[in-house]
Design a protein around this nucleic acid. Structure first.
Length: 568
DNA sequence: GCCGTTTTCGGCCCGACTGTTTTCAGTCG
């Protein structure tokens, strides 16, 4: 994606500027890179409408570079610099402890330009002895390469490590060495992936607390350890920061370590503009402590409402908090039904009975079974006749079931935008999810037309996993979401937030956009087995990160109200 | 290179830890 490409380029330019000692240019490039990759929206659209400068951190010079990249496919200054520094910064920067200056030192002295040449230098033992490097530096680099090759430097799915991290917190709590414990960082912000874990604690016996922590069997090794901060590698490959604070500072610490970094930078700038200083110990006016023990007081002292962790991405939440216009986010406990599930009758692993039983046990009031339609052969999609007989099974189950079961389908949108089942079959269905799975092309207009036609059919309720992305393995489909959102609004079609971790689709930034159109959303776990039902929790997290209130989420309705809403 | 509730110039978030240094630079979050 263009945003990612340019963000990577600007990150590299930041590295090279730093090598050349231009600190502020470096910071400017990094800032631009960050806002392009997180909050940028589609760069092509912004470019076409001449609104590139609206992006935080993009001024005259960087705007020109983005333009050149779009129009000519290259950025002259980048190419010039790259000729001087033919280095794979992106990979080398992923090694713990290696930044631009050290990379440059290794490059000039030993010709290190990527992981392979670094490994060669390590094998020669030629690094210790270089100016600024010693035995320990060489050893820690060796370790960093080892970790990189074992785990990659990739982020992990929140859903994948969620329970394990909660377990660690429980073990710490059980020691009764801590008065309070919280997990901060992107974990607390419920980002779909996390790069590391931050655990904060209050303890009257920090020494013992730290010792207890390092001796947990989840800890694989210590990366660094000082009097107030320690960093370890967990056995699951993640790095974990553990810090102990005084009660008076705990709110400031929570604020600081929850981030995001961009959100924090913004807050600290506001503090400065009000003649104050904000750090992880508190908010200060001169020597006087204005706030520190709880987060809300800090935000209030800065003239802001308290901001939910999920919103802290510097995507307008600070302005909204200043104007007291933050949304009341949909709550995790308010989701009453799951609107995307499969059974063994197509590509699921559990039976209808098992899925319904598990949904009921997890406290849901209803579930829509949305098996694939016949066009998706790899998933053994059901034919019209298949659905009719499956529907009869649901009817009879509904007579004895404690929760309501809706007859659903995850319906293929065919190549020409038509639908994969007969009208008479669709008439029988309670809930129709429509999805693109196959035949998606490189042309955004063609893909969009296909989706818009399906939305306009009057026969679908919700658009499933709209971007089609699979985090880590497949890019989002090329689609024009402005047109899709308009079509959904016009035809009263909902949009799904799919909580399957690899999908996490619609992504939260697009949820926030779609929300502005007044569209309603359906949450789905996309369960292929009973244990996937927990994905609904993570779908809710995406909804919250996308600023949704309860009224925007269809699943918060009870079964009767939901039935009325989907009646065609 | 960016930006403006004090600014169109002169600032730019802040503190901890490590390793190599004899007081600090580099890295990280």
């Amino acid at each position: 994606m263009l945003n990612d490409e340019l963000a990577a380029i600007f990150e590299e330019m930041a590295d090279m500027e730093e090598i050349e000692g231009r600190k502020w240019q470096s910071i400017a490039y990094r800032k631009a890179a960050a806002s392009i990759s997180t909050a940028g929206g589609n760069l092509i659209d912004l470019y076409r409408s001449g609104r590139l400068r609206d992006i935080d951190g993009v001024g005259e010079a960087i705007e020109a570079k983005i333009r050149d990249y779009i129009e000519k496919g290259k950025i002259e200054k980048y190419d010039e610099m790259k000729a001087r520094y033919p280095i794979d910064f992106a990979s080398l920067r992923k090694l713990q402890g290696l930044g631009p200056k050290k990379i440059y030192a290794l490059f000039t002295a030993l010709g290190v330009k990527d992981i392979e040449t670094l490994k060669a230098a390590l094998n020669d033992h030629s690094i210790s002895g270089l100016q600024g490097f010693g035995e320990k530096s060489e050893e820690s680099l060796r370790k960093a390469v080892e970790v990189f090759e074992k785990y990659g430097a990739n982020r992990r799915f929140l859903a994948e490590i969620y329970d394990e991290i909660q377990e660690i917190k429980k073990k710490l709590a059980k020691s009764s060495l801590f008065e309070d414990l919280e997990i901060a960082g992107s974990f607390r912000r419920m980002r779909e992936t996390v790069g590391d874990i931050d655990i904060l604690g209050i303890s009257s016996n920090p020494e013992k607390g730290r010792e207890f922590f390092t001796n947990l069997d989840d800890v694989a090794g210590i990366i660094s350890s000082g009097p107030s901060k320690m960093t370890v590698r967990l056995k699951n490959g993640l790095t974990c920061d553990f810090r102990i604070f005084a009660r008076d500072s705990f709110g400031a610490a929570m604020q600081y370590f929850t981030g995001s970094k961009e959100h924090n930078v913004q807050l600290r700038e506001i503090a400065i503009s009000k003649g104050m200083k904000l750090n992880e110990y508190g908010l200060y006016e001169g020597d006087r402590v204005k706030a520190g023990s709880d987060e809300a007081t800090i935000y209030r002292a800065l003239g802001l409402e308290w901001i939910e962790p999920e919103l802290r991405e510097n995507m307008g939440e600070i302005e909204a908090a200043g104007a007291k216009r933050l949304p009341r986010l949909v709550e995790y406990g308010s989701i009453r039904g799951d609107l995307h599930t499969h059974t063994v009758d197509t590509d699921g692993r559990n039976t209808l009975e098992q899925m319904v039983g598990a949904a009921s046990a997890s406290g849901l009031e209803y579930i829509a079974i949305t098996n694939h339609s016949k066009g998706l052969k790899v998933a053994k999609g059901l034919t019209d006749e298949g659905f009719r007989s499956f529907n009869r099974k649901i009817d009879s189950m509904n007579e004895k079931s404690s929760i309501r079961i809706f007859k659903g389908v995850e319906l293929e949108i065919l190549k020409d935008g038509s639908l994969d089942l007969d009208d008479s079959t669709l008439q029988e269905m309670d809930f129709v999810l429509a999805a693109l799975h196959q035949g998606v092309v490189g042309d955004a207009n063609e893909n969009t037309a296909r989706v818009v036609k399906a939305i306009g059919s009057g026969k679908i309720h919700s658009l499933a996993h709209p971007t089609g992305r699979l985090i880590g393995s497949r890019e989002a489909y090329r689609l024009n979401f402005e047109r899709i959102f308009e079509a959904c609004k016009e035809n009263q079609v909902f949009i799904e937030i799919n909580g399957y971790p690899e999908r996490s689709d619609l992504p939260f930034d697009l949820v926030k956009k779609a929300r502005e159109y007044g569209i309603l959303f359906t949450l789905g776990s996309d369960s292929h087995s009973t244990k996937d039902l927990r994905n609904l929790h993570f779908a809710t997290a995406i909804a919250r990160r996308g600023w949704l209130d309860k009224e925007s989420v269809v699943n918060t309705l009870n079964a009767d109200h939901f039935t009325n809403l989907i009646r065609r």
